[in-house]
Design a protein around this nucleic acid. Structure first.
Length: 548
DNA sequence: GAAGTCACG
DNA sequence: ACGTACGTGACTTCA
Protein backbone atom coordinates (compact mmCIF):
# COMPACT_ATOMS: atom_id res chain seq x y z
CA UNK A 1 0.00 0.00 0.00
CA UNK A 2 1.47 3.33 -0.99
CA UNK A 3 1.84 6.29 1.37
CA UNK A 4 1.43 4.11 4.40
CA UNK A 5 4.15 2.53 6.50
CA UNK A 6 4.87 0.70 9.70
CA UNK A 7 7.88 0.68 11.96
CA UNK A 8 8.62 -2.05 14.44
CA UNK A 9 11.25 -1.16 17.04
CA UNK A 10 13.10 -4.26 18.15
CA UNK A 11 14.67 -4.48 21.57
CA UNK A 12 18.36 -5.11 22.09
CA UNK A 13 17.62 -8.08 24.32
CA UNK A 14 18.47 -11.32 22.51
CA UNK A 15 15.51 -13.38 23.67
CA UNK A 16 13.02 -10.64 22.89
CA UNK A 17 14.63 -10.30 19.47
CA UNK A 18 14.16 -13.99 18.86
CA UNK A 19 10.49 -13.73 19.75
CA UNK A 20 10.00 -10.87 17.31
CA UNK A 21 11.88 -12.51 14.48
CA UNK A 22 9.98 -15.75 14.93
CA UNK A 23 6.82 -13.77 14.29
CA UNK A 24 8.34 -12.04 11.26
CA UNK A 25 10.00 -15.13 9.77
CA UNK A 26 6.93 -16.50 7.93
CA UNK A 27 6.62 -13.19 6.11
CA UNK A 28 10.25 -12.90 5.01
CA UNK A 29 10.55 -16.57 4.12
CA UNK A 30 7.27 -16.69 2.18
CA UNK A 31 8.10 -17.01 -1.50
CA UNK A 32 4.65 -15.81 -2.52
CA UNK A 33 5.13 -12.34 -1.05
CA UNK A 34 7.11 -9.82 -3.08
CA UNK A 35 9.72 -7.79 -1.18
CA UNK A 36 10.21 -4.29 -2.53
CA UNK A 37 13.11 -2.21 -1.31
CA UNK A 38 16.14 -0.13 -2.08
CA UNK A 39 19.38 -2.12 -1.90
CA UNK A 40 17.84 -5.39 -0.77
CA UNK A 41 21.20 -7.14 -0.52
CA UNK A 42 21.86 -5.04 2.57
CA UNK A 43 18.56 -5.98 4.19
CA UNK A 44 18.97 -9.63 3.28
CA UNK A 45 22.35 -9.69 4.98
CA UNK A 46 21.08 -7.95 8.12
CA UNK A 47 18.16 -10.36 8.43
CA UNK A 48 20.48 -13.29 7.89
CA UNK A 49 22.32 -12.32 11.07
CA UNK A 50 19.03 -12.97 12.86
CA UNK A 51 18.74 -16.30 11.12
CA UNK A 52 16.15 -15.22 8.57
CA UNK A 53 16.65 -16.28 4.96
CA UNK A 54 14.71 -13.86 2.78
CA UNK A 55 12.88 -15.54 -0.07
CA UNK A 56 12.06 -14.01 -3.45
CA UNK A 57 10.32 -12.53 -5.48
CA UNK A 58 12.41 -9.42 -4.97
CA UNK A 59 12.11 -5.96 -6.44
CA UNK A 60 15.08 -3.68 -5.87
CA UNK A 61 14.63 -0.06 -6.92
CA UNK A 62 18.36 0.65 -6.77
CA UNK A 63 19.04 -2.17 -9.19
CA UNK A 64 16.10 -1.14 -11.36
CA UNK A 65 17.44 2.35 -11.74
CA UNK A 66 20.91 1.05 -12.47
CA UNK A 67 19.46 -0.65 -15.53
CA UNK A 68 17.39 2.37 -16.50
CA UNK A 69 20.52 4.52 -16.56
CA UNK A 70 23.79 3.12 -15.24
CA UNK A 71 25.60 6.45 -15.53
CA UNK A 72 23.40 8.25 -13.01
CA UNK A 73 23.37 8.06 -9.23
CA UNK A 74 21.09 5.51 -7.62
CA UNK A 75 20.71 6.59 -4.00
CA UNK A 76 17.16 6.77 -2.69
CA UNK A 77 17.32 10.50 -1.85
CA UNK A 78 18.28 11.48 -5.38
CA UNK A 79 15.72 9.19 -6.98
CA UNK A 80 12.95 10.43 -4.71
CA UNK A 81 13.78 13.99 -5.57
CA UNK A 82 13.95 13.48 -9.32
CA UNK A 83 11.12 10.96 -9.82
CA UNK A 84 8.70 11.74 -6.95
CA UNK A 85 9.52 15.39 -6.50
CA UNK A 86 9.91 14.79 -2.79
CA UNK A 87 12.91 15.40 -0.54
CA UNK A 88 13.06 12.67 2.12
CA UNK A 89 14.06 13.15 5.76
CA UNK A 90 17.83 13.01 5.62
CA UNK A 91 19.65 10.62 7.86
CA UNK A 92 22.09 13.40 8.71
CA UNK A 93 19.44 15.60 10.29
CA UNK A 94 18.45 12.62 12.42
CA UNK A 95 21.75 11.28 13.66
CA UNK A 96 24.33 13.81 12.53
CA UNK A 97 27.21 13.62 10.07
CA UNK A 98 29.35 10.54 9.74
CA UNK A 99 32.07 10.30 12.34
CA UNK A 100 32.50 9.47 15.94
CA UNK A 101 29.83 11.94 17.06
CA UNK A 102 27.18 10.31 14.92
CA UNK A 103 24.33 9.08 17.09
CA UNK A 104 22.68 5.69 16.80
CA UNK A 105 19.10 5.22 15.58
CA UNK A 106 18.44 3.54 18.91
CA UNK A 107 18.99 6.82 20.78
CA UNK A 108 16.23 8.65 18.91
CA UNK A 109 12.61 9.04 19.95
CA UNK A 110 10.56 6.30 18.35
CA UNK A 111 8.34 8.79 16.51
CA UNK A 112 11.29 10.19 14.56
CA UNK A 113 12.58 6.79 13.54
CA UNK A 114 9.06 5.76 12.58
CA UNK A 115 8.76 8.62 10.14
CA UNK A 116 12.16 7.99 8.68
CA UNK A 117 11.86 4.23 8.33
CA UNK A 118 8.28 4.21 7.05
CA UNK A 119 9.12 6.84 4.51
CA UNK A 120 12.12 4.83 3.35
CA UNK A 121 9.96 1.76 2.73
CA UNK A 122 7.20 3.74 1.08
CA UNK A 123 9.48 5.59 -1.33
CA UNK A 124 10.73 2.32 -2.74
CA UNK A 125 7.15 1.20 -3.33
CA UNK A 126 6.29 4.46 -5.05
CA UNK A 127 9.39 4.26 -7.24
CA UNK A 128 8.57 0.71 -8.26
CA UNK A 129 5.49 1.82 -10.18
CA UNK A 130 7.52 4.35 -12.18
CA UNK A 131 10.48 2.06 -12.75
CA UNK A 132 8.29 -0.85 -13.92
CA UNK A 133 7.22 1.29 -16.82
CA UNK A 134 10.71 2.52 -17.58
CA UNK A 135 12.23 -0.95 -17.46
CA UNK A 136 9.70 -2.02 -20.04
CA UNK A 137 10.18 0.96 -22.27
CA UNK A 138 13.95 0.58 -22.18
CA UNK A 139 13.81 -3.10 -23.02
CA UNK A 140 15.69 -4.08 -19.87
CA UNK A 141 12.86 -5.89 -18.09
CA UNK A 142 14.33 -9.29 -18.96
CA UNK A 143 17.81 -8.49 -17.81
CA UNK A 144 16.26 -7.16 -14.59
CA UNK A 145 14.23 -10.31 -13.95
CA UNK A 146 16.66 -12.88 -15.27
CA UNK A 147 20.03 -11.46 -14.23
CA UNK A 148 20.16 -8.53 -11.85
CA UNK A 149 17.43 -9.59 -9.42
CA UNK A 150 18.52 -13.23 -9.14
CA UNK A 151 22.15 -12.26 -8.64
CA UNK A 152 21.32 -10.22 -5.52
CA UNK A 153 20.95 -13.42 -3.52
CA UNK A 154 24.11 -14.89 -5.05
CA UNK A 155 26.17 -11.85 -4.08
CA UNK A 156 24.63 -11.76 -0.60
CA UNK A 157 25.68 -15.38 -0.10
CA UNK A 158 29.22 -14.73 -1.36
CA UNK A 159 29.58 -11.75 0.96
CA UNK A 160 28.25 -13.73 3.91
CA UNK A 161 30.62 -16.58 3.18
CA UNK A 162 33.84 -14.55 3.00
CA UNK A 163 37.31 -15.89 2.24
CA UNK A 164 40.06 -17.06 4.59
CA UNK A 165 43.54 -15.58 4.64
CA UNK A 166 46.74 -16.66 6.31
CA UNK A 167 47.46 -13.71 8.59
CA UNK A 168 50.58 -15.10 10.22
CA UNK A 169 52.10 -15.65 6.77
CA UNK A 170 51.27 -12.05 5.86
CA UNK A 171 52.94 -10.77 9.00
CA UNK A 172 56.14 -12.64 8.07
CA UNK A 173 55.85 -11.19 4.58
CA UNK A 174 55.53 -7.75 6.16
CA UNK A 175 58.87 -8.17 7.90
CA UNK A 176 60.49 -9.40 4.70
CA UNK A 177 59.17 -6.45 2.73
CA UNK A 178 60.13 -4.03 5.48
CA UNK A 179 63.80 -5.06 5.30
CA UNK A 180 63.90 -4.67 1.52
CA UNK A 181 62.08 -1.33 1.69
CA UNK A 182 64.58 0.04 4.21
CA UNK A 183 67.55 -1.05 2.11
CA UNK A 184 66.07 0.56 -0.99
CA UNK A 185 65.20 3.72 0.90
CA UNK A 186 68.68 4.32 2.31
CA UNK A 187 70.21 3.66 -1.11
CA UNK A 188 67.89 6.23 -2.67
CA UNK A 189 68.67 8.85 0.00
CA UNK A 190 72.38 8.24 -0.46
CA UNK A 191 72.24 8.60 -4.23
CA UNK A 192 70.11 11.72 -4.07
CA UNK A 193 72.13 13.32 -1.28
CA UNK A 194 68.96 14.15 0.61
CA UNK A 195 66.34 12.63 2.88
CA UNK A 196 62.75 13.27 1.94
CA UNK A 197 59.31 11.67 1.97
CA UNK A 198 59.43 9.08 -0.78
CA UNK A 199 55.68 8.86 -0.68
CA UNK A 200 55.32 12.48 -1.73
CA UNK A 201 55.29 12.82 -5.52
CA UNK A 202 55.90 16.52 -5.03
CA UNK A 203 59.08 16.10 -2.99
CA UNK A 204 60.31 13.28 -5.21
CA UNK A 205 59.77 15.36 -8.35
CA UNK A 206 61.76 18.23 -6.88
CA UNK A 207 64.66 15.95 -5.99
CA UNK A 208 64.78 14.24 -9.37
CA UNK A 209 64.22 17.17 -11.65
CA UNK A 210 65.38 20.25 -9.70
CA UNK A 211 68.20 18.91 -7.54
CA UNK A 212 69.54 16.07 -9.69
CA UNK A 213 68.30 17.52 -13.00
CA UNK A 214 67.93 14.07 -14.51
CA UNK A 215 66.22 15.40 -17.63
CA UNK A 216 66.20 18.76 -19.36
CA UNK A 217 62.46 18.96 -20.02
CA UNK A 218 60.63 16.95 -17.34
CA UNK A 219 57.03 16.01 -18.01
CA UNK A 220 54.50 17.77 -15.80
CA UNK A 221 51.07 16.81 -14.54
CA UNK A 222 47.99 18.90 -15.29
CA UNK A 223 48.52 20.88 -12.09
CA UNK A 224 52.10 21.80 -13.02
CA UNK A 225 53.86 19.36 -10.74
CA UNK A 226 56.64 17.19 -12.10
CA UNK A 227 55.17 13.85 -13.06
CA UNK A 228 56.83 10.92 -11.34
CA UNK A 229 54.41 8.28 -12.60
CA UNK A 230 55.58 4.78 -13.36
CA UNK A 231 55.31 5.56 -17.06
CA UNK A 232 57.62 8.58 -16.82
CA UNK A 233 60.15 6.94 -14.49
CA UNK A 234 60.32 3.72 -16.52
CA UNK A 235 61.56 5.69 -19.49
CA UNK A 236 64.51 6.88 -17.37
CA UNK A 237 65.15 3.59 -15.61
CA UNK A 238 67.81 2.30 -17.96
CA UNK A 239 70.01 5.38 -17.46
CA UNK A 240 69.74 5.89 -13.70
CA UNK A 241 70.04 3.33 -10.96
CA UNK A 242 68.23 5.62 -8.53
CA UNK A 243 65.14 5.51 -10.75
CA UNK A 244 65.18 1.72 -10.75
CA UNK A 245 65.45 1.81 -6.95
CA UNK A 246 62.56 4.24 -6.67
CA UNK A 247 60.35 2.13 -8.91
CA UNK A 248 61.15 -0.94 -6.90
CA UNK A 249 60.50 0.88 -3.62
CA UNK A 250 57.23 2.23 -4.90
CA UNK A 251 55.83 -1.10 -6.01
CA UNK A 252 56.93 -2.84 -2.84
CA UNK A 253 55.52 -0.05 -0.66
CA UNK A 254 52.23 -0.29 -2.54
CA UNK A 255 52.01 -4.00 -1.87
CA UNK A 256 52.90 -3.55 1.77
CA UNK A 257 50.49 -0.75 2.58
CA UNK A 258 47.51 -1.81 0.47
CA UNK A 259 47.63 -5.57 0.97
CA UNK A 260 50.17 -7.05 3.39
CA UNK A 261 49.34 -4.65 6.23
CA UNK A 262 45.69 -3.92 5.45
CA UNK A 263 44.14 -7.27 4.66
CA UNK A 264 44.61 -8.75 8.16
CA UNK A 265 42.65 -5.78 9.57
CA UNK A 266 39.70 -6.77 7.40
CA UNK A 267 39.29 -10.19 8.95
CA UNK A 268 35.93 -10.41 10.72
CA UNK A 269 35.97 -11.17 14.43
CA UNK A 270 32.74 -13.06 14.02
CA UNK A 271 33.73 -15.41 11.20
CA UNK A 272 37.52 -15.21 10.95
CA UNK A 273 37.23 -14.45 7.24
CA UNK A 274 37.30 -11.43 4.94
CA UNK A 275 33.90 -10.29 3.69
CA UNK A 276 34.21 -7.96 0.73
CA UNK A 277 31.17 -6.19 -0.66
CA UNK A 278 30.24 -6.68 -4.27
CA UNK A 279 28.64 -3.54 -5.59
CA UNK A 280 26.01 -4.18 -8.19
CA UNK A 281 25.22 -0.63 -9.24
CA UNK A 282 28.56 1.14 -9.55
CA UNK A 283 30.08 0.51 -12.96
CA UNK A 284 28.74 2.02 -16.16
CA UNK A 285 29.14 -1.21 -18.13
CA UNK A 286 27.44 -3.86 -16.00
CA UNK A 287 30.51 -5.19 -14.25
CA UNK A 288 30.55 -5.65 -10.50
CA UNK A 289 32.93 -3.75 -8.31
CA UNK A 290 34.32 -4.79 -4.96
CA UNK A 291 35.25 -2.79 -1.89
CA UNK A 292 36.17 -2.83 1.80
CA UNK A 293 38.41 -4.49 0.92
CA UNK A 294 38.62 -4.62 -2.85
CA UNK A 295 39.27 -8.28 -3.62
CA UNK A 296 39.17 -7.73 -7.37
CA UNK A 297 42.62 -6.17 -7.49
CA UNK A 298 44.73 -8.63 -5.51
CA UNK A 299 48.25 -8.64 -7.04
CA UNK A 300 49.37 -11.36 -9.46
CA UNK A 301 51.56 -9.77 -12.11
CA UNK A 302 54.84 -9.55 -10.18
CA UNK A 303 56.75 -12.07 -8.12
CA UNK A 304 56.18 -10.15 -4.89
CA UNK A 305 52.56 -9.69 -5.84
CA UNK A 306 52.14 -13.43 -6.20
CA UNK A 307 53.35 -13.87 -2.64
CA UNK A 308 50.27 -11.91 -1.56
CA UNK A 309 47.90 -14.09 -3.57
CA UNK A 310 49.29 -17.07 -1.72
CA UNK A 311 47.77 -15.68 1.48
CA UNK A 312 44.23 -16.49 0.26
CA UNK A 313 43.44 -19.99 1.44
CA UNK A 314 40.58 -22.49 1.80
CA UNK A 315 38.38 -22.28 4.88
CA UNK A 316 39.81 -25.46 6.41
CA UNK A 317 41.91 -28.54 5.70
CA UNK A 318 38.84 -30.19 4.28
CA UNK A 319 38.66 -27.69 1.46
CA UNK A 320 40.65 -26.53 -1.58
CA UNK A 321 40.30 -23.39 -3.63
CA UNK A 322 39.13 -23.63 -7.23
CA UNK A 323 39.70 -20.78 -9.67
CA UNK A 324 37.86 -20.85 -13.00
CA UNK A 325 38.32 -18.15 -15.59
CA UNK A 326 36.99 -17.39 -19.03
CA UNK A 327 39.80 -17.45 -21.57
CA UNK A 328 39.85 -14.31 -23.75
CA UNK A 329 36.17 -13.64 -23.12
CA UNK A 330 36.14 -10.08 -24.43
CA UNK A 331 37.83 -11.01 -27.71
CA UNK A 332 35.45 -13.92 -28.08
CA UNK A 333 32.54 -11.57 -27.52
CA UNK A 334 33.73 -9.09 -30.13
CA UNK A 335 34.44 -11.92 -32.58
CA UNK A 336 30.93 -13.20 -32.06
CA UNK A 337 28.98 -9.95 -32.27
CA UNK A 338 31.07 -8.58 -35.14
CA UNK A 339 30.67 -11.93 -36.93
CA UNK A 340 34.21 -11.48 -38.29
CA UNK A 341 34.90 -14.80 -40.02
CA UNK A 342 38.66 -14.79 -39.54
CA UNK A 343 38.50 -14.12 -35.85
CA UNK A 344 35.69 -16.63 -35.38
CA UNK A 345 37.81 -19.23 -37.20
CA UNK A 346 40.71 -18.64 -34.86
CA UNK A 347 38.54 -19.31 -31.82
CA UNK A 348 36.62 -22.22 -33.35
CA UNK A 349 39.99 -23.89 -34.05
CA UNK A 350 41.19 -23.05 -30.54
CA UNK A 351 44.22 -21.18 -31.82
CA UNK A 352 46.30 -18.67 -29.86
CA UNK A 353 44.53 -15.47 -30.82
CA UNK A 354 47.53 -13.17 -30.35
CA UNK A 355 49.80 -15.37 -32.48
CA UNK A 356 47.17 -15.63 -35.21
CA UNK A 357 46.66 -11.89 -35.11
CA UNK A 358 50.43 -11.31 -35.38
CA UNK A 359 50.66 -13.69 -38.33
CA UNK A 360 47.89 -11.78 -40.08
CA UNK A 361 49.12 -8.24 -39.49
CA UNK A 362 52.75 -9.07 -40.28
CA UNK A 363 51.68 -11.32 -43.15
CA UNK A 364 53.73 -14.33 -42.04
CA UNK A 365 53.09 -17.91 -40.93
CA UNK A 366 51.97 -18.43 -37.34
CA UNK A 367 55.11 -20.48 -36.64
CA UNK A 368 57.31 -17.56 -37.71
CA UNK A 369 55.81 -15.13 -35.21
CA UNK A 370 58.40 -13.74 -32.78
CA UNK A 371 57.81 -12.88 -29.13
CA UNK A 372 57.85 -9.18 -29.94
CA UNK A 373 55.40 -9.56 -32.77
CA UNK A 374 53.02 -11.56 -30.59
CA UNK A 375 53.38 -8.95 -27.87
CA UNK A 376 52.49 -6.15 -30.26
CA UNK A 377 49.55 -8.10 -31.64
CA UNK A 378 48.33 -8.66 -28.10
CA UNK A 379 48.48 -4.93 -27.41
CA UNK A 380 46.49 -4.22 -30.58
CA UNK A 381 43.91 -6.83 -29.66
CA UNK A 382 43.42 -5.11 -26.32
CA UNK A 383 43.45 -1.75 -28.01
CA UNK A 384 40.59 -2.85 -30.24
CA UNK A 385 38.47 -3.61 -27.19
CA UNK A 386 39.16 -0.14 -25.80
CA UNK A 387 38.61 1.73 -29.07
CA UNK A 388 42.11 2.07 -30.53
CA UNK A 389 43.96 5.11 -31.71
CA UNK A 390 47.42 5.18 -33.27
CA UNK A 391 48.55 7.44 -30.45
CA UNK A 392 47.25 5.15 -27.74
CA UNK A 393 48.90 2.15 -29.33
CA UNK A 394 52.25 3.89 -29.68
CA UNK A 395 52.08 4.76 -25.98
CA UNK A 396 51.66 1.13 -25.07
CA UNK A 397 54.35 -0.26 -27.38
CA UNK A 398 57.79 0.72 -28.61
CA UNK A 399 56.21 1.54 -31.95
CA UNK A 400 56.10 5.05 -33.38
CA UNK A 401 52.82 6.68 -34.13
CA UNK A 402 53.09 5.97 -37.86
CA UNK A 403 54.11 2.37 -37.27
CA UNK A 404 51.13 2.09 -34.98
CA UNK A 405 48.86 3.42 -37.65
CA UNK A 406 50.15 0.81 -40.10
CA UNK A 407 49.56 -1.89 -37.50
CA UNK A 408 45.97 -0.78 -37.02
CA UNK A 409 45.35 -0.57 -40.77
CA UNK A 410 46.75 -4.07 -41.23
CA UNK A 411 44.62 -5.24 -38.34
CA UNK A 412 41.41 -4.03 -39.94
CA UNK A 413 42.42 -5.56 -43.25
CA UNK A 414 42.95 -8.86 -41.47
CA UNK A 415 39.68 -8.65 -39.59
CA UNK A 416 37.35 -6.63 -41.85
CA UNK A 417 34.32 -7.64 -39.83
CA UNK A 418 35.70 -5.82 -36.82
CA UNK A 419 36.10 -2.58 -38.69
CA UNK A 420 32.52 -2.81 -39.88
CA UNK A 421 31.27 -3.63 -36.44
CA UNK A 422 33.03 -0.67 -34.88
CA UNK A 423 31.61 1.86 -37.29
CA UNK A 424 28.16 0.32 -37.06
CA UNK A 425 28.30 0.63 -33.27
CA UNK A 426 29.13 4.29 -33.55
CA UNK A 427 26.32 4.82 -36.06
CA UNK A 428 23.90 3.02 -33.79
CA UNK A 429 24.93 5.20 -30.87
CA UNK A 430 24.59 8.38 -32.90
CA UNK A 431 21.06 7.45 -33.95
CA UNK A 432 19.72 5.97 -30.74
CA UNK A 433 21.83 7.70 -28.10
CA UNK A 434 22.84 4.42 -26.48
CA UNK A 435 24.59 1.10 -27.13
CA UNK A 436 23.65 -2.29 -25.74
CA UNK A 437 25.08 -5.66 -24.71
CA UNK A 438 24.05 -9.08 -25.99
CA UNK A 439 21.46 -9.25 -23.22
CA UNK A 440 20.18 -5.73 -23.92
CA UNK A 441 21.88 -3.88 -21.09
CA UNK A 442 22.16 -0.25 -22.18
CA UNK A 443 24.66 2.54 -21.79
CA UNK A 444 23.58 6.01 -22.85
CA UNK A 445 26.23 8.17 -24.49
CA UNK A 446 25.45 11.81 -23.89
CA UNK A 447 28.37 13.11 -25.95
CA UNK A 448 28.16 10.89 -28.99
CA UNK A 449 27.04 13.82 -31.19
CA UNK A 450 29.05 16.50 -29.40
CA UNK A 451 30.84 19.23 -31.35
CA UNK A 452 33.74 18.84 -28.95
CA UNK A 453 36.20 16.47 -30.53
CA UNK A 454 37.54 15.06 -27.32
CA UNK A 455 34.14 14.42 -25.78
CA UNK A 456 32.84 12.84 -28.97
CA UNK A 457 35.89 10.59 -29.39
CA UNK A 458 35.51 9.50 -25.79
CA UNK A 459 31.86 8.59 -26.38
CA UNK A 460 32.85 6.70 -29.53
CA UNK A 461 35.34 4.61 -27.58
CA UNK A 462 32.60 3.91 -25.03
CA UNK A 463 30.27 2.90 -27.87
CA UNK A 464 32.78 0.22 -28.81
CA UNK A 465 33.94 -0.84 -25.35
CA UNK A 466 30.71 -0.85 -23.34
CA UNK A 467 28.94 -3.63 -25.29
CA UNK A 468 32.05 -5.81 -25.11
CA UNK A 469 32.86 -5.32 -21.44
CA UNK A 470 29.15 -5.37 -20.62
CA UNK A 471 28.36 -8.55 -22.56
CA UNK A 472 31.20 -10.34 -20.80
CA UNK A 473 29.68 -9.12 -17.52
CA UNK A 474 26.24 -10.44 -18.56
CA UNK A 475 27.73 -13.82 -19.37
CA UNK A 476 29.55 -14.36 -16.10
CA UNK A 477 26.54 -13.15 -14.11
CA UNK A 478 24.33 -15.74 -15.82
CA UNK A 479 26.91 -18.42 -15.02
CA UNK A 480 27.05 -17.32 -11.38
CA UNK A 481 23.28 -17.54 -10.94
CA UNK A 482 23.08 -21.00 -12.45
CA UNK A 483 26.08 -22.32 -10.52
CA UNK A 484 24.60 -20.94 -7.30
CA UNK A 485 21.29 -22.66 -8.02
CA UNK A 486 22.95 -25.98 -8.76
CA UNK A 487 25.06 -25.83 -5.60
CA UNK A 488 21.92 -25.10 -3.61
CA UNK A 489 19.82 -27.78 -5.22
CA UNK A 490 22.48 -30.39 -4.47
CA UNK A 491 23.11 -28.97 -0.99
CA UNK A 492 26.84 -28.85 -1.64
CA UNK A 493 29.25 -27.82 1.08
CA UNK A 494 31.32 -26.00 -1.54
CA UNK A 495 30.72 -22.27 -1.94
CA UNK A 496 31.31 -19.55 -4.52
CA UNK A 497 33.51 -16.90 -2.89
CA UNK A 498 34.73 -14.32 -5.36
CA UNK A 499 34.13 -12.90 -8.83
CA UNK A 500 36.94 -11.05 -10.57
CA UNK A 501 35.29 -9.99 -13.84
CA UNK A 502 36.22 -13.08 -15.85
CA UNK A 503 37.08 -15.40 -12.97
CA UNK A 504 35.19 -17.20 -10.22
CA UNK A 505 36.80 -18.52 -7.04
CA UNK A 506 35.31 -21.35 -4.97
CA UNK A 507 35.92 -23.03 -1.67
CA UNK A 508 35.50 -26.68 -2.59
CA UNK A 509 35.03 -29.52 -0.13
CA UNK A 510 37.53 -32.25 -1.03
CA UNK A 511 34.77 -34.82 -1.44
CA UNK A 512 33.05 -32.59 -4.01
CA UNK A 513 35.97 -31.76 -6.31
CA UNK A 514 34.72 -33.73 -9.29
CA UNK A 515 31.09 -32.62 -9.14
CA UNK A 516 31.98 -28.98 -8.55
CA UNK A 517 34.51 -28.92 -11.35
CA UNK A 518 31.93 -30.35 -13.76
CA UNK A 519 29.19 -27.95 -12.70
CA UNK A 520 31.46 -24.91 -12.88
CA UNK A 521 33.05 -25.75 -16.21
CA UNK A 522 29.84 -26.78 -17.96
CA UNK A 523 27.77 -23.93 -16.61
CA UNK A 524 30.33 -21.27 -17.48
CA UNK A 525 30.82 -22.70 -20.97
CA UNK A 526 27.13 -22.83 -21.73
CA UNK A 527 26.00 -19.59 -20.07
CA UNK A 528 25.16 -18.14 -23.48
CA UNK A 529 25.36 -19.39 -27.05
CA UNK A 530 27.84 -17.33 -29.07
CA UNK A 531 29.23 -17.75 -32.57
CA UNK A 532 32.44 -18.93 -30.93
CA UNK A 533 33.00 -21.44 -28.13
CA UNK A 534 33.54 -20.17 -24.60
CA UNK A 535 36.67 -21.65 -23.07
CA UNK A 536 37.26 -22.10 -19.33
CA UNK A 537 40.58 -22.62 -17.56
CA UNK A 538 40.18 -24.04 -14.10
CA UNK A 539 42.46 -25.34 -11.41
CA UNK A 540 42.49 -26.42 -7.77
CA UNK A 541 45.05 -25.30 -5.24
CA UNK A 542 45.80 -24.93 -1.57
CA UNK A 543 45.91 -21.17 -2.12
CA UNK A 544 44.64 -18.68 -4.71
CA UNK A 545 47.99 -18.50 -6.49
CA UNK A 546 48.21 -22.26 -6.86
CA UNK A 547 44.69 -22.37 -8.25
CA UNK A 548 45.84 -20.37 -11.27
C1' DG B 1 38.61 16.43 -0.55
C1' DA B 2 41.46 16.67 -4.67
C1' DA B 3 45.50 14.95 -6.82
C1' DG B 4 48.86 11.52 -7.84
C1' DT B 5 49.90 6.95 -8.08
C1' DC B 6 49.16 2.03 -8.84
C1' DA B 7 46.87 -2.70 -7.81
C1' DC B 8 43.48 -5.68 -10.88
C1' DG B 9 40.42 -7.36 -15.26
C1' DA C 1 46.18 20.93 -34.21
C1' DC C 2 44.79 18.54 -30.09
C1' DG C 3 44.60 15.08 -26.56
C1' DT C 4 43.25 9.82 -26.11
C1' DA C 5 43.45 3.91 -24.79
C1' DC C 6 38.12 0.67 -21.33
C1' DG C 7 36.34 -0.37 -16.32
C1' DT C 8 37.30 -0.12 -11.09
C1' DG C 9 39.13 1.03 -5.44
C1' DA C 10 42.78 2.18 -1.96
C1' DC C 11 46.57 4.56 -0.12
C1' DT C 12 49.32 8.80 0.80
C1' DT C 13 50.20 13.63 0.61
C1' DC C 14 48.87 18.26 0.79
C1' DA C 15 46.06 22.43 0.57
Amino acid sequence: MEKKGFYLPIDNNKSIQKEYFDILRPFFENDQIIKVGHNLKFDIKVLFKYDITVSGPLYDTMVAHYLINPDMRHNLDTLSESYLNYIPISIETLIGKKGKNQRSMRDLPVEEVTDYASEDADLALQLKKIFDKELNENGVKNIFNDIEIPIIEVLADMEKEGISINSSYLSKLDEEFEIDLNKLKSGIFEKSGAEFNLNSPKQLGDILFEKLKLVSKPKKTKTGQYSTSEEVLSALASEHEIIRNILEWRSLDKLQSTYVRSLPNEVSNRTGRIHTRFNQTVTTTGRLSSNTPNLQNIPIRTENGQKIRKAFIPRSDEYELLAADYSQIELRVIASISKDEKMIDAFVNDQDIHTITAAKIFNINPNEVTRDQRGNAKTVNFGIIYGVSAFGLSQQTKLSRSESKIMIDNYFESYPGLKNYMSSQIDFARNKGYVETIMGRRRYLQNINSQNNMLRSGAERNAINAPIQGSAADIIKIAMIRIHNKFKKQSLKSKMLLQVHDELVFDVHKTEKKIVKDIVKNTMESAVELNVPLKIDLEFGKNWLEAH
